[in-house]
Design a protein around this nucleic acid. Structure first.
Lengths: 327, 327
DNA sequence: GCTTGCTCTGAAAAGCGTTCCACACATTAT
DNA sequence: ATAATGTGTGGAACGCTTTTCAGAGCAAGC
């Protein structure tokens, strides 16, 4: 297929002029512009974007990492990112990392070798050093709090979220409260647990290890929780659960095993997934779509101001209690 | 940052030799190779992928279009694509099109300007001509049946799916059966409707227009169906629904309004979304993840054999009935 | 001893568009 | 009338890597 040199030759002008036409530069004689456009049309010419990228040093692509693609929480974040990115003519490279630092590093690498202009990490498992290292090659935003010095973030205040949930349960006279979270040692989990333990301490309840469920990632994990709960000595009367999917598993299994919700077991979820609405699950919700939007905005600004050394910024989303039928 | 020329100069060799090292070409003296690798390491050098792409004419990126990112059905397809793509070192550019032909065209364009090596369209709204036109620039696979001459597809046999569902409902003695589908005129919908009408005709039932619900896309749309059902003269005793999300909406709303499922209203869904399992919805299921996997395989083969003019291929996935509690 | 066939290396072309600089010409301002 | 500003255009450098081709040197085979 034709290239810009060929178009220039056919139009009897220089490549510079053709390039100006392609980029809507004003300093081109209107008659010539029309002529050139006609030839471009005839030749069915389009720029080779790889040449453009090489030349400009930008790709108009941003990377997005997430542990797994098929998950509503991450999908909602991406939805927010995608809408905002589209407005600014950016494309998204969505990379599933399976929470594997190796795979994550390969995505960070895209920043170094200039395949992407910036990166949003919906979750990350790389070390702080790795992140700081790659932050030198292009802007990175995480959608979790992070402990680096240079990587900004937009995140839900998970401490606050669990706090609100716990306060609500306590107000409803629950004292034996269990929790259910995903990855045991993630940043998010640490904040959630801190709120959980602080709140229980504030009402002088000593939490039993039997009330704690970690590494709950699937609906089935949620279901399994109920079986274990039934075997505990002092069964919790309420569970605070990091996500509504798991909460749904708990609720379904509970009613299958004859526990009524919320009478025998109250359940409160902690996200804004639609399954929560469908199953009428009480939840402490923040909009993950909005988080995605903010993440893109922050990234975009950094891409344009090139502030690789810019100071770290943290934006926190405050959760809201949505009272429904499971508490 | 350093480029290949600089590395060559530092190592006292030509750029060709450095390039050979970078690409693991065998014909390089081992001592030199080690030396060059050391310098690459020291200089923290990596290839500029845009230059590589320009030179090789490949980007190792494939595009994926879908109407909206935040949807379990499409997410499962992407999951299948992503896993397979990762195995072959391809990255995914995920593009939300909102079922808008304009936006879809902008993605097809990526093929023309060489930003992607191939394209999987999880859904499409472009015309057949448009698709055929762009198929000349690179391989395209659709995850729906399509009526083009050149674009291959992997798809669920929606006709068969509805057929199985209808036969099952009829075997359960239902005669007044309604249906609920998404986009009114999509290829998929046409096949579904054909099965629906054929089956009803085979038992001499004249379908009422009141039993037909189209453009059902959200859970809320599903809920709305129930309200309308209650106002019909001859209420259907069963609904066949194109997706489990909508089915879930119907089921929830039905029980809220005092209709018991399946006694007053049987509901059968038609996909493999996890909400079906959670809510124990009977469903006619095909694995959308598997579909994604097949789509990538097919695309990958086409990318490597370059058969732009290859004959059209169609792979159909056969559905399976999963009997649960809503029928 | 001569031919074949490897192994290894470098020069140069090919892939393609953007942008800076210089220059020409035309206006407008002083 | 002269300086200053704006419009329009081309040449050439720049961004960077891959790949083809040509050739040198060396070993094995006949």
């Amino acid at each position: 297929m034709a290239n810009i040199r060929e178009i220039a030759k056919l139009a009897g002008v220089s490549v510079s002029t053709v390039s100006r036409v392609l980029n809507n530069h004003p300093y081109v004689n209107e008659k010539k512009r029309a002529e050139i456009l006609k030839i471009i049309e005839e030749q069915n010419y389009v720029q080779n974007s790889n040449a453009v990228h090489l030349s400009t040093g930008k790709t108009m692509v941003i990377g997005v990492t997430l542990p797994l693609v098929n998950n509503q929480y991450y999908s909602s974040i991406i939805e927010g990112i995608a809408a905002e990115a589209a407005r600014h003519h950016y494309k998204l490279m969505v990379c599933q990392t399976n929470n594997n630092p190796e795979q994550e590093r390969s995505v960070l690498h895209l920043l170094k070798n200039k395949k992407i202009d910036g990166l949003i990490m919906c979750s990350r498992s790389s070390s702080c050093e790795t992140l700081n290292e790659y932050a030198g090659y292009g802007p990175i935003i995480t959608c979790e709090a992070n402990d680096t010095t240079s990587v900004s973030s937009v995140h839900i205040d998970h401490y606050q979220t669990f706090l609100i949930g716990m306060e609500y349960l306590i107000k409803k006279e629950h004292r034996r409260i269990g929790y259910c979270i995903g990855r045991k040692n993630s940043f998010n989990s640490q904040h959630r647990k801190r709120a959980y333990y602080e709140k229980l301490r504030s009402i002088d309840v000593t939490p039993s290890p039997e009330w704690a469920f970690e590494e709950c990632l699937t609906i089935q994990d949620g279901k399994n929780v109920v079986g274990k709960l039934l075997q505990t000595e002092e069964r919790p009367t309420a569970m605070i659960v990091s996500c509504n999917h798991i909460a749904a598993g708990i609720i379904k299994e509970a009613s299958r095993l004859g526990l009524s919700v919320p009478e025998d077991l109250a359940v409160i979820g902690c996200d804004d997934q639609p399954i929560g609405e469908l199953l009428e699950i009480t939840t402490v919700s923040s909009s993950s779509t909005l988080m995605g939007k903010y993440a893109f905005e922050m990234l975009h600004e950094r891409i344009w101001t090139q502030q690789l050394d810019g100071k770290k910024e943290e934006k926190e989303l405050s959760p809201v209690l949505v009272e429904r039928l499971t508490t």
